[in-house]
Design a protein around this nucleic acid. Structure first.
Lengths: 127, 127
DNA sequence: CCATTATATAAGTGTTCGCGAATATATTCA
DNA sequence: TGAATATATTCGCGAACACTTATATAATGG
């Protein structure tokens, strides 16, 4: 499984972080501004910004005392592109699914379902 | 804050669910197939499918004993569209940010930063 | 109605996560 | 070096979460 992919979505999928993302889509802000405008304590803001930064979704620029954060929109677009590529990719070529593909070759389940369906169908014909 | 938006990303941002999504992008499967192919216990698969279904990311179709799940690709595309609209929207018109906008009008923070910066600049000129 | 097959739900448990409080680090200036 | 300002990190707690086990529900046929 592509670790980066689901981690990026997890980073976006949290209310506080989504608020931060929206703020930074409006403009760049330093931590104290985000903290004051959102009515949140500073450590809370810093912690979430770190998570977003680790996923490359935001960048930081220090200016003296202040650290200004900005949105990396390119990362967002690349994320969706990668996700679409993940969906379109051939299962058989994906290393994370090699075990899955192996199990899909064992037709146990598929055969069992097929057999059961036919058995039902037959018995229905007779009834 | 748009509850649906971050919940959808949270749903995608989990390794097991991302695997399920990938499986269903390949084909429709019933729960017992997903369970067997992914090597997971059936309740685990059912529970995660429920979360995906609640977000409209997958659909279910019962066929006799079996419940076949399929990917709702339209929901995925709409999700990203909504997310982009969320980023582009004007903060002032977003009800979820009315308090934030109010606090941004209080120029306390901005003014404090400005003052500090000017004080630094001035003193730097003299040094 | 009972057995069978598949799926959903509930209960219990260990882990992760978000938060606030306290502390540490970084930067700048005196 | 010490003070002031801003930010990062650590710690502890309660809630949320993912997983397994056990049980309940749904659908079908005898």
């Amino acid at each position: 499984m592509d670790k980066k992919l689901y981690n990026a979505f997890k980073a976006i999928g949290e209310p506080t972080r989504l608020k931060l993302i929206k703020m930074l889509s409006h403009s760049s802000y330093c931590v104290c501004e985000l903290s004051e405008y959102l009515g949140m304590l500073q450590p809370r803001v810093s912690q979430h910004l770190k998570i977003l930064k680790d996923e490359g979704l935001v960048r930081e620029n220090r200016e003296g005392y202040w650290v200004y954060y900005s949105l990396d929109k390119e990362t967002f677009h690349r994320l969706w592109y990668d996700f679409m590529a993940f969906l379109d990719a051939d299962l058989k070529t994906m290393t994370d699914f090699s075990d899955v593909v192996k199990r899909m070759d064992n037709t146990d389940c598929r055969q069992r379902i097929k057999d059961t369906k036919e058995r039902i169908k037959k018995s229905s014909c007779y009834s």
